[in-house]
Design a protein around this nucleic acid. Structure first.
Lengths: 67, 67
DNA sequence: GAAAATTATACCTTAACGGGTATAATCATA
DNA sequence: TATGATTATACCCGTTAAGGTATAATTTTC
């Protein structure tokens, strides 16, 4: 499974949303959405889950070596 | 899939480690390990991944409705 | 049951995340 | 190319996570 930032970026685009639109709808700050999609690792999990929830997902444990 | 805190708690116990031993081996603070296992949602993702890495895992997107 | 070990909760300090804003860079479209 | 839209990077500040320590509660072991 791809990393979470990539997942958000791809699904956001597939939904036809800009980062700004996505941030507003998810109730997140634009800066956070950008940091997340940019692969920042020190983000807060509650915010990450708030973003993933837009696609019916959440952060769960997965094999680390899955591409 | 269970939430991450539960995953850590169960696997840590299965490995026969106390929270303190686990914290030391993972290079994490004892307080963080406790907060994580207690279900604290505002933890930082890099620390969560540091804990999951002890079992070859990392945080990935998963279906939100999986029990 | 008692004692020891483990875990949970509370207080304090330091470092940094998240948010806002501004500016630069990149991409899309004509 | 030019123009606009979108995304990336940088700065400042308030809030808070993380870690340490101490104490209480819980669990385990005898």
């Amino acid at each position: 499974m791809k990393n979470i930032g990539t997942f958000i970026k791809e699904n956001r685009k597939a939904a036809g949303l800009t980062q700004e639109e996505f941030a507003v709808r998810a109730g997140l700050g634009l800066r956070f959405v950008r940091d997340l999609e940019q692969g920042k690792e020190t983000v807060r999990m509650d915010k990450v889950n708030q973003a993933l929830a837009m696609f019916g997902m959440k952060a769960v444990p997965g094999k680390a070596d899955d591409e």
